[in-house]
Design a protein around this nucleic acid. Structure first.
Lengths: 249, 249
DNA sequence: CAAATAGTGTCTGTAAGACACTATCAG
DNA sequence: CTGATAGTGTCTTACAGACACTATTTG
């Protein structure tokens, strides 16, 4: 009886989500920042079943009454955990299977956030679980994380490295004002290899997503360094190393 | 009462998905192929509400009893529509909001498939809705497709073009055996611009994902062309135009 | 032979990496 | 002055695009 002549109105009034077996649907976040001269990720200890006691990515079910969109749901979780209002946020990948959660068929939209450690105010107490920053290392993904969160974390690290090879992404790990040397250190940290200063600066300037802060320098016991900031109104991500040929022709 | 001392077993026995308001969760497919010298995409006319009568991407709800994983769900939909068993399939992006489906909060995992038109056997009759191939053009995304499928289609086209710039992806649009000129035509079609023959062939050979089929040529009223095929056991996607520097150091 | 497409060789500009050089501060 | 880091210039090499050239078939 699905192909009759009911109006859409009639159809909808007879439709009830609860009549069907549906997957659990959640949002999980991989939140990166720079702390203690290292790339770190935020994990939360689960205070309840399933996976009680294990470390997990922050996240949870979509609240169909409060969240208008998937991005809203991710932003809400991020703000609840870190207090950060306007992070760099992008969708990473979906993960779903019959077996990843013992409560039943489960699917999650994994997100990927970069924030400056200056902006963080970890939310403690109340219903918040214990949250802690972990330095990103190869063995962290194979640690005994909850659900398939090790796999999600590995995918996030891969994505961050890939984007670092050819985009401005890592700027979002820094505070609003920084020197080019600061930025170079971030690239080196994420890529795990040294980067040539001259070539790096050429590429960044060419990308044209930064601007000098007029007259503002950082002083130390050496030549002062020009401070830069993101050029206002520019996209959050600028691709560099444009591909050969004339991509517009 | 979430933080008590129940065992996981006790917890699960009291847990019921139907106690909560959950989003509808589905899988949608953007299936590309080459037909009539053009890049085409498969759309299905909806035979029922909502969006009755509109063209939509093939897809549907996850069947928590038949599908073990998200990828399984996508593969099942693809086989049901096209009969293709082993396509190139990758996850595209998740889309979800309170408003994209009038039945309620809805989220979808969009997938992205490339198939050779040689392999297609469109499934007609039975419960299958009318399916039809449409040539990909800019205006197709802004046509009046069901739900937010125009947006999903646009994202898929963007992804295909991006990958075509720097990977072997387009080979999956061709039959198992093809000439280098065939392949070049595909790249040109997807990118919408001419590609230099010499540079193209250098890059493809360097990518090392193809092999000559020994002694097998395609004959016409001109010099015969060597036929190639995917090198067995190689990954479905090979990146070309490797990034500068020494990415392994 | 001509026509047609397959396939290759050569030149050139551009840009990235390497690395040395200069600049400018504190103390 | 020295030490330290900021910032730039120069050289070399690799490679993609442009484009002309050769090769091999049918008819």
């Amino acid at each position: 009886m699905t192909n009759d002549n009911r109006t859409e109105q009639e159809f909808l009034s007879s439709y009830n989500v609860h009549d069907y077996d549906v997957p659990l649907t959640s949002v999980d976040l991989v939140i990166f920042t720079l702390r203690e001269q290292a790339l770190q990720v935020l994990l939360v200890r689960r205070s309840d079943h399933p996976c009680k006691g294990k470390w997990s990515l922050p996240g949870g079910f979509i609240d169909v009454h409060r969240d208008k969109t998937l991005d809203d749901a991710a932003l809400r979780k991020l703000r609840e955990k870190t207090g950060v209002q306007t992070p760099y946020l992008e969708q990473l990948q979906g993960f779903g299977s019959a077996s990843r959660d013992p409560r039943g068929w489960s699917a999650t939209f994994a997100y990927f956030a970069l924030i400056s450690s200056d902006d963080i105010q970890l939310q403690h107490g109340g219903t918040a679980d214990a949250a802690q920053w972990f330095t990103v290392a190869e063995n962290l993904c194979s640690a005994d994380l909850a659900f398939d969160h090790g796999e999600i974390l590995a995918a996030a690290i891969t994505r961050l490295r890939d984007r670092t090879e050819n985009s401005s992404m890592p700027v979002h790990l820094l505070p609003a004002e920084f020197t080019l040397t600061d930025l170079q250190r971030v690239y080196e940290l994420v890529l795990g290899r040294p980067v040539d200063k001259s070539a790096f600066r050429k590429r960044i300037k060419e990308g044209d997503f930064l601007e000098e802060i007029p007259g503002k320098m950082r002083h130390a016991s050496n030549r002062p360094a020009q401070l830069y900031r993101l050029r206002a109104g520019h996209p959050a991500l600028t691709l560099m190393r444009r591909i050969g040929g004339d991509a517009k022709a």
